[in-house]
């Protein structure tokens, strides 16, 4: 078996101190293989977002290790960690986090700008990925003037512009109506199947979770084996 793209061992995460202490994760181990589609499912407060943030190297665990493609993340310098996130990961957020005053093109090209890619190349690659998501005609529009579905497609374009190997999505359809949500879901699964991009999605939507190859259920900071809510 090949080296997993992400491997976590005994992750814990605690917020606050003393009486306010809250253990968000109490020892979670998991592995994600290259090209897999994984749903992290749980109720709000279950620790699912915390787990995703740790896997995406956006936060540091209290204890435990994360290996990215065989490399221990703790050993990496901040600079290497930033570069790794920039080149390896793409992020899709429920609240979009688009810059409303900037054009769609500028929003999509932001990760390239951070990576230090020149303006001409940025434009070319951003247009390419917008083409792929059928948004090329919106490139010059202000991000504020788009519908919810279009916004989420712009966010996906932004996540893809760096050719990432792993796409993290946090409730990607949470702010969308069912029909638009469906379109966005199809795009994400398409990317997973056709381009082999590993898809890790946090959701509380069991219907969406059913479409993933693998589901990880989490409750009170621990992984559980079954979808007990549906089982019950």
């Amino acid at each position: 078996m090949s080296v997993p793209i992400l491997a976590a061992r005994d992750l814990t995460k605690t917020y606050g101190k003393g009486p306010d202490r809250f253990d968000a994760l109490k020892g979670v181990s998991l592995e994600v293989q290259r090209g897999e589609s994984v749903a992290i499912v749980g109720k709000s407060g279950s620790g699912k977002s915390t787990l995703m943030h740790l896997l995406a190297l956006l936060d540091t665990p209290g204890t435990g290790q994360i290996h990215v493609d065989g490399t221990e993340a703790n050993d990496l310098s901040t600079r290497r960690l930033n570069a790794l996130r920039n080149s390896l990961f793409g992020f899709v957020f429920q609240q979009f986090f688009l810059n409303p005053a900037s054009s769609v093109l500028e929003n999509v090209a932001l990760p390239l700008k951070i990576a230090g890619v020149g303006p001409r190349e940025r434009r070319r690659r951003a247009l390419e990925v917008l083409e792929q998501l059928q948004l090329a005609d919106k490139a010059k529009n202000k991000a504020a003037n788009l519908s919810g579905g279009q916004k989420q497609r712009v966010v996906i374009a932004r996540a893809l512009v760096n050719n990432p190997q792993v796409l993290f999505a946090d409730e990607p359809t949470g702010n969308l109506d069912t029909a638009t949500g469906r379109i966005v879901e199809d795009i994400l699964f398409d990317l997973n199947r056709k381009d082999g991009i590993t898809l890790i999605t946090v959701t509380h939507d069991h219907e969406l979770a059913q479409r993933f190859e693998r589901r990880i259920f989490i409750r009170d900071g621990l992984l559980i084996n079954t979808d007990e809510e549906h089982a019950a």
């Binding site: 995406a56 956006l58 901040t78 600079r79 930033n82 570069a83 790794l84 996130r85 920039n86 080149s87 992020f91 957020f93 609240q95 986090f97 810059n99 932001l110 990760p111 951070i114 990576a115």
Partner: peptide, 16 residues
Amino acid sequence: TREIGLMKAMGMGSGS
């Protein structure tokens, strides 16, 4: 704040 968070998530260093 959120924009800064986003840029940092995308790998922008604190120095930048």
